[in-house]
């Protein structure tokens, strides 16, 4: 599957199927600071991702004040 990451914007390829939380854990991305989006829709942690999926993992932490 294709995974779009942000800050900085980049794309990686992941082999095989995965559940969303397994993918986040594998990439070392905490659930509390990321959302996973497919075709403009949020997908929950227990969803199985297909090898043809294109997803975005969007960080939600912002700095400044």
């Amino acid at each position: 599957m294709k995974v779009l990451l942000r800050n900085p914007r980049r794309e990686i390829e992941i082999e095989g199927r995965r559940r969303v939380h397994a993918l986040l854990a594998e990439l070392g991305l905490p659930r509390e600071s990321h959302l996973v989006i497919r075709n403009g829709t949020l997908i929950p942690g227990d969803e199985e991702l297909d090898k043809d999926d294109v997803i975005e993992i969007r960080p939600v932490i912002s700095g400044g004040f």
């Binding site: 942000r6 800050n7 914007r9 905490p30 600071s33 969007r58 960080p59 932490i61 912002s62 700095g63 400044g64 004040f65």
Partner: peptide
């Protein structure tokens, strides 16, 4: 979605993490 480039290393981000 992109971070403000001047926030880099901002202390608050560390606290949030």
């Amino acid at each position: 979605v992109e971070e403000c480039p001047m926030a880099e290393g901002n202390r608050h981000i560390g606290y949030k993490e």
